[in-house]
Design a protein around this nucleic acid. Structure first.
Lengths: 137, 137
DNA sequence: CATAAAAGGATATAAAATGTCTTTTTAGGG
DNA sequence: CCCTAAAAAGACATTTTATATCCTTTTATG
């Protein structure tokens, strides 16, 4: 349970790599894919999703590729994960009240709400800046 | 991402219901299933898992059924969820260091560790006692 | 207009989730 | 000792989700 999919894992790898590159340098998808060891066609889909919401900017044609859409310190891990995995929903009943017929009498409901809040909190506190700079030791 | 499966949802419903019953009263699986609106055959599998680790006790034959294996206040939501969903692993790399080839250089690793800790913390803090007593207003 | 590269759409395969069915084991009661 | 009740165990079926791949289209550059 609670497991990040490959897609999410690849998404993070890809955009973190992009964050390590100078923002004025356009990167080929194929180069990114090779660098982070992800199937290029799969990463393409992921970056298309990023592009739609502005996490990255794309350029077509010769000399095209991708750059980060915003500064690394302004992009949170939460945004990245939710961009490809959808919203973080530990239980259906948390997504909308109507989904939880028993919401009135259900004591479990607030627990999942708390789980959701905690997870989002942790992921929101981390930015691409921190993830892309080697700050261990 | 991060979504509890039906199995987990059913597991909680079933055992919470059992916790509302007097501990000396043996409950039929079919009755529990009907009460919490879960396919009986599916719930059977779930309760078999519970039984193996002692969360519930089972009795076969005439007059058989299930009772809670321990007191409601000693069983946490975490135990229930992990009993049927397996350990809470937000990312493969958290389960064992060897799974994360990049663990040395990977800044994301500690974040998933934190997510895991937070989620486990929330679920561990909740017992069947609290879940089975109507304490809202 | 030829080429490079991303975007979009359709399709394929594998794995996991969600059940169901049948048979076996265990226990109780007459 | 049989008959019945109930859980345990195992095999199977279906649906959904994950994990890609391939082909065509659009867009930009030289």
């Amino acid at each position: 349970m609670m497991e990040l999919t490959r897609k999410g894992e690849y998404a993070i790898r890809g955009i973190v790599y992009l964050a390590t590159r100078p923002m004025d340098k356009v990167c080929l998808l194929s180069d990114i894919a090779a660098a982070v060891d992800v199937p290029p066609t799969f990463l393409a889909k992921i970056f298309q999703q990023f592009s739609k919401i502005g996490l990255v900017r794309s350029f077509r044609g010769t000399g095209g590729g991708f750059v980060l859409g915003r500064s690394p310190e302004s992009i949170t891990l939460l945004e990245v994960v939710e961009a490809v995995e959808g919203p973080i929903i530990p239980n259906r009943c948390v997504s909308s009240p109507s989904n939880c017929e028993r919401s009135g009498l259900c004591n479990v409901h607030p627990v999942w709400q708390r789980v959701q809040d905690e997870v989002r909190g942790v992921l929101q506190a981390v930015t691409l800046k921190e993830l892309s700079t080697q700050n261990k030791r």
